[in-house]
């Protein structure tokens, strides 16, 4: 097999130019999922009556379907549903002016939220209820105990899993191409298709993913060490 390395070198900067799109997709979807996932985790952890049942149903629905299918549903029914909703609420807006990337944020957040909710819940379950009680006993409110004592520890426990989820999300962001959002994988496909040099353009994406994910792993590791300082020595 002939690899045209010259083409690889030429294509590399062009593909790399779409890295910000990949990063944007990852960062936005991760942020949304972290916020909603943590709320879901807490509701499930506290076993809030109706709310936790609704969330569990949502979670098994999302977990039970492939992400590709979720994207199809969003792509085909999303605009239709929005049009209906806008009409009902009398909002004058053109649904088709909504940028595809917003649908991609939604699509990627759906399943990531579920993973994060479970990771954070596992973290919460690992904390002794004595941590809550001692906080309450010195006059703190439940919210204060949660944010100063419980969540910091829960996230430390969940951290390695959250790292995995983040790395998974970086890779899943390539699915946004199905929603016509062009990120690195999408652009490599376009570029390769134009001159029938798929293999070369995919080599570029391969290296970009490897490096980006390695860097992410290193950052997560470094952060984990600083978070773990309180467990440093056992007497």
């Amino acid at each position: 097999m002939n690899v045209d390395w010259k083409f690889v070198i030429e294509a590399f900067p062009q593909v790399l130019a779409y890295l910000p799109v990949t990063i944007e997709l990852t960062v936005v979807a991760m942020t949304i999922s972290l916020i909603i996932g943590t709320i879901f985790a807490y509701i499930n952890f506290k076993k809030v009556k109706v709310a936790s049942q609704i969330i569990r149903t949502y979670m098994s629905l999302i977990r039970g379907t492939p992400i590709v299918l979720q994207i199809f549903v969003i792509f085909h029914f999303g605009p239709y549903l929005l049009t209906e909703m806008f009409q009902k609420l009398n909002i004058q807006a053109d649904v088709y002016s909504i940028k595809p990337i917003y649908y991609a944020f939604l699509a990627l957040s759906l399943s990531t939220t579920v993973s994060i909710a479970e990771a954070v819940r596992a973290g919460l379950e690992s904390i002794d209820k004595g941590q809550f009680e001692s906080g309450l006993s010195v006059g703190m409110t439940e919210g204060q105990v949660l944010f100063n004592v419980v969540f910091p520890q829960a996230f430390t426990t969940a951290w390695p899993v959250l790292g995995n989820i983040l790395v998974g999300l970086i890779k899943s962001s390539s699915l946004a191409f199905m929603l016509s959002v062009v990120e690195i994988t999408g652009y490599a496909r376009i570029l390769g298709g134009g001159v029938l040099r798929y293999f070369e353009s995919y080599i570029c994406v391969f290296f970009i993913y490897i490096v980006v994910i390695k860097i992410t792993e290193l950052i997560m590791k470094k952060l984990e060490e600083t978070k773990l300082v309180y467990r440093r020595r056992q007497c």
């Binding site: 002794d128 004595g130 009680e133 001692s134 906080g135 100063n148 910091p152 520890q153 430390t156 309180y230």
Partner: peptide, 12 residues
């Protein structure tokens, strides 16, 4: 305030 059997210091 309360002192517990198993201390329950804030671990973090």
């Amino acid at each position: 305030s309360f002192v517990f059997q198993n201390y329950n210091l804030f671990n973090n």
